[in-house]
Write a protein that binds this DNA or RNA. Structure first.
Lengths: 154, 154
DNA sequence: AACGGTCAAGAACGATCGTTCCTTTTCTTG
DNA sequence: CAAGAAAAGGAACGATCGTTCTTGACCGTT
């Protein structure tokens, strides 16, 4: 069946997720992806179809593999505002969701899961119907990210 | 002293702020700005120096003119999550501040003001040292924006 | 060992990016 | 009413964007 591919699709997807978590979608070029992921253009387009396809795959992977452990921490009452695991979701929500229906759907689904995890958190049992706990968490991470990342080399 | 300029600098700055509130910085091209603001390229570059200069001017204008009325509403205990007045600040915080020190400084200043306004809000007098009220507000607007703007023609 | 299909390597595509230059028009000023 | 300065108009710059094409190397199959 021809030559086998020389890269692990999941590893590449995870690396792409990390890149997209650092800068905005338009701020990550295909050249950046090719260089950082170590995968040739052709292979990226053959595997993911387009830059958007790779982005969606990365977002889905992130939601499937990075969010579950986070929800566990949240349900256990841990503090996670320093964890950059929410960054890709933040960027997706703010700058992609308004322009991409699929991204919006994924973001909404992620929030439902995070919300449920926070409902189970010990500190928030008294919370009402509104998910203010998640809102506060998102805001907290938003501020941490904006103020801290000014000088870091990502 | 030559021909007077045919546009109001403040009007243009406000319009630019609205554009940058809708899409990410890299998603707004100079062509978009020229077309939407009705000002010629040369005039934009003469007045603001660069695209980033116009962005910074727009952000500053937004912080000076759109945020004060918002802080008043907040201090009065009003609900403002449906108000898109926070959108430019959200985008600036998430995608520009990590890459631009001046943006980060402006965003930090804006948060200080919003925070103080919320400390004065009647519903949040019991709040502790942490500014969870502002965090919750930011998260709330974040979610509202992501879920609502999927089909709107901005 | 020869085939056939997949991958890797890299050049190249048109389009668009932010920015600059040149020319023409319009206004203020003496 | 000239003279000069600044704005408008628009083409053009090199660089980079996402995407595709062409060529040759590789490997599983018969």
């Amino acid at each position: 069946m021809g030559r086998p591919r020389g890269f692990d699709e999941e590893v590449v997807t995870a690396a792409a997720a990390e890149l997209f978590a650092g800068r905005a979608y338009d701020g990550v070029s295909v050249d950046d992806l090719v260089q950082q992921l170590g995968v040739h253009r052709n292979s990226l387009y053959k595997t993911f179809g387009s830059k958007r396809g790779l982005y969606l795959a990365a977002l889905r992977w992130h939601l499937d593999h990075r969010l579950p452990p986070l929800t566990e921490q949240l349900a256990a009452g841990a503090e996670v505002a320093d964890d950059p695991a929410l960054d890709l979701l933040l960027l997706a929500a703010v700058e992609r969701a308004p322009r991409d229906v699929e991204v919006a759907a994924l973001v909404t689904k992620a929030w439902q899961e995070l919300d449920q995890a926070l409902q189970r958190a010990p500190a928030n049992h008294t919370d009402g119907t509104r998910s203010t706990a998640l809102n506060a968490l998102l805001g907290e991470r938003l501020r941490a990210r904006a103020t801290a990342a000014t000088t870091d080399p990502s």
